[in-house]
Amino acid sequence: MHSLGMRFPQGDWQTVRMTTIAVLGSANMDLVVRQTRLPLPGETIFGSGFSTVPGGKGLNQAVAAARLGGSVEFLGAVGSDAYGAELRALMATEGIRTDGLATTDAPTGTAHISVVDSGENSIVVVSGANATVTTLSEAQRTSIEGCGYLVMQCELPLSVLVEGIALARASGAFTVLTPAPVMPLPDGFLASVDLIVPNQIEATELTGESDPVQAAEALSAGNTWAIVTLGAQGSVIAHNGTVLGVAPARPVKAIDTTAAGDTFVGSLVARLAARADQTAAPTEDEMIDAVRWATTASSVSVTRAGATSSMPTLAEVAAILA
Results as ranks from 00 to 15, higher is better:
L167M: 05
A168K: 00
A168L: 05
A168H: 01
R169Q: 06
S171H: 08
S171C: 09
S171I: 08
G172L: 08
F174V: 10
F174G: 03
F174K: 01
L177F: 02
L177N: 02
P179Q: 05
P179C: 05
A180T: 10
A180M: 15
P181S: 13
V182T: 15
V182G: 11
P184S: 12
P184R: 13
L185N: 04
L185F: 04
F189G: 03
F189Q: 02
A191K: 02
A191P: 00
A191R: 03
S192R: 09
D194R: 00
I196H: 00
V197L: 04
P198G: 10
P198S: 10
P198I: 12
N199Y: 06
N199S: 02
Q200Y: 00
E202D: 01
A203C: 01
T204H: 02
E205G: 02
E205W: 06
L206R: 01
L206W: 08
L206M: 07
T207G: 04
T207Q: 03
S210T: 15
S210L: 10
D211F: 14
P212C: 13
Q214F: 03
Q214W: 01
A215C: 15
A215H: 12
E217C: 14
E217G: 06
A218C: 07
L219K: 00
S220Y: 02
A221N: 01
A221M: 05
G222A: 01
T224I: 07
W225R: 01
L230S: 10
G231W: 12
G231D: 15
A232V: 15
A232T: 14
A232S: 15
A232M: 04
A232W: 03
G234S: 08
G234F: 07
S235H: 08
V236K: 10
V236C: 14
V236I: 15
I237E: 02
A238E: 01
A238T: 05
H239I: 00
H239G: 01
G241P: 02
T242L: 02
T242H: 09
V243F: 11
L244D: 03
G245I: 11
V246Q: 11
P248L: 15
R250M: 13
R250Q: 15
R250K: 13
V252L: 13
K253F: 10
A254I: 06
A254N: 12
D256V: 14
T257E: 12
T258F: 14
T258E: 11
T258N: 15
A259N: 12
A259E: 08
A260V: 11
A260Y: 11
A260W: 13
A260T: 14
D262S: 12
T263R: 13
T263M: 14
T263C: 15
F264N: 07
F264K: 09
G266E: 09
S267Y: 12
L268I: 10
V269Q: 02
V269C: 09
V269E: 04
V269P: 04
V269M: 02
A270F: 14
A270T: 14
R271F: 07
L272W: 07
A273F: 05
A273Y: 11
